[in-house]
């Protein structure tokens, strides 16, 4: 790409160079969940776009500079909000499952697969 030379001149617009657009695996997972849930009919794409836009607006109002690097955090927050609104998953379930994964990760020695104890 011809863009690399301009990187330092552009504080306002973060650039990439045609590289991977997911910076971490969780971003890809969050992306894929929203697309699959939509394809499965849980929500329309318009509902999703509106929820995501509202989440981004909320984050900006709360002081997020919103330079694109926090985008999938907003994506995840919007997805949690929408699946709860649709009654697919409850807040209590999300918290309990988060704590279960946290405990499972901490209890797993490095190099061993992490599994949930149920």
């Amino acid at each position: 790409m011809t863009t690399a030379v301009d990187l330092d001149r552009l504080p306002a617009i973060p650039r990439d160079a045609d590289g991977p657009v997911f910076r971490e695996p969780w971003e890809a997972a969050a992306f894929a969940m929203a697309v699959r849930l939509h394809q499965g009919g849980l929500f329309t794409w318009t509902e999703w776009a509106e929820t995501l836009a509202a989440e981004i607006t909320r984050a900006q109002a709360a002081g997020d500079p919103d330079r694109g690097d926090t985008y999938y955090r907003h994506w995840l927050a919007a997805l949690e909000r929408l699946v709860k609104a649709k009654g697919a998953v409850s807040d209590a379930e999300l918290h309990a499952r988060r704590d279960a994964w946290d405990a499972a990760v901490r209890a797993t020695p490095h190099g061993k697969p992490i599994v949930l104890q149920r």
Partner: peptide, 15 residues
Amino acid sequence: WSEVELRVKALESLL
């Protein structure tokens, strides 16, 4: 895991 990774994994495994 980071907080955001825990949230993603919680949501994904529930779904």
